[in-house]
């Protein structure tokens, strides 16, 4: 019987949307090539800094306003994926790297070029990557099974029938809006509750015990150290609260409710990875066009 402390847990989240594309038009005046920012008609809360967004032209022409330097193979195509940063004026900057897109810095900024025609586009927020949620101090998850009373006349004892399962919980984390370790800052969930049109969904993996993590506290056998146990579900952010006190770290609390199935999963054997013929692993390219899913090129 081991003793398990809270520091063996963590939270992974994947950005998520309802998958529906938004169609719009990029006009020549929307593209500022000198500042490498552009825009199109969208609600300012539709996109969030750090989103991986797929841009596709709807008339099968090329995305001419994105320089060839912004493509993994240097060829301008009709569809591509980039991380985005939304500046204070609602302009969009493109990045090949998640961390750079959170900061909106000039490092890693994808260059743009001026255009002379209107380009119709469809924009879709992709949900490819799962990241650790940064600086979490505690989380709570409640699962609840509703019951229906089916007691009938002449019964001596109440009878209940299993009904629907619901879940809800909260996350508390130290506030941050950038993170250089490829982790998701809590600021994203604060923005998510304000997101319009495509909702405030996220996919969460809430770990009771993380794999390959040997904390200073607690006791683990050799076979236990690589075990992982976690809840996995989709959730909707329902409430966001941030507290400020002069002598305390800024802390944000996020409340959520689950939607769909809640799974309590366990991984007690080492993970198996798909390898190439020569034994090398497959590498998922993070930037530019290439994706190992969706409408990638052959």
């Amino acid at each position: 019987m081991g003793i398990y402390l809270g520091n063996i847990g963590n939270i992974e989240i994947a950005r998520k949307s309802d998958g529906s594309p938004k169609e719009s038009l990029v006009n020549p005046s929307d593209v500022n090539a000198s500042r490498n920012r552009f825009s199109f008609d969208f609600d300012e809360s539709y996109l969030i800094a750090g989103d991986l967004v797929e841009f596709t032209t709807t008339d099968a022409t090329s995305l001419d306003f994105i320089s060839s330097a912004g493509w993994a193979d240097g060829i301008v195509r009709s569809s591509g994926n980039w991380y985005i940063f939304i500046d204070e004026l609602g302009g969009i900057r493109l990045y090949n790297n998640f961390d750079d897109s959170l900061e909106g810095s000039t490092a890693g900024l994808v260059p743009l070029v001026a255009i002379t025609r209107n380009i119709p586009i469809a924009v879709t927020v992709r949900d490819r990557d799962t990241r650790l949620l940064a600086s979490v101090t505690d989380y709570e998850l409640n699962t609840n099974r509703e019951t229906v009373d089916i007691t009938t006349l002449s019964d001596e004892y109440r009878q209940q029938y299993s009904s629907l399962i619901t879940g809800s919980g909260s996350i508390t984390a130290q506030w941050d809006y950038v993170d250089e370790g490829g982790r998701e800052p809590i600021h994203y969930l604060m923005q998510l509750v304000l997101r319009t049109e495509i909702g405030s969904n996220f996919h969460g993996k809430f770990y009771i015990k993380s794999a390959n993590f040997n904390p200073s506290g607690g006791t683990f056998s050799d076979t236990q150290s690589n075990d992982a146990l976690w809840w996995e579900f989709d959730a909707i952010v329902t409430n966001s609260a941030t507290s400020f006190a002069t002598t305390d770290i800024i802390v944000s609390q996020i409340d959520f409710i689950t939607t769909g199935a809640i799974r309590l999963r366990a991984l007690t054997t080492g993970g198996r990875k798909l390898l190439q013929e020569n034994g090398d692993p497959f590498i998922l390219e993070q930037g530019g066009y290439s994706l190992l899913e969706g409408n990638e090129l052959p």
């Binding site: 009938t152 006349l153 002449s154 019964d155 001596e156």
Partner: peptide, 21 residues
């Protein structure tokens, strides 16, 4: 109480009755 209640239709005691009035 409801525990003592019964409902019979055409002489047949009905099952799973939750109330009658």
């Amino acid at each position: 109480t409801g525990k003592d209640g019964r409902l019979l239709l055409d002489g047949i005691e009905q099952v799973k009755v939750t109330n009658w009035s």
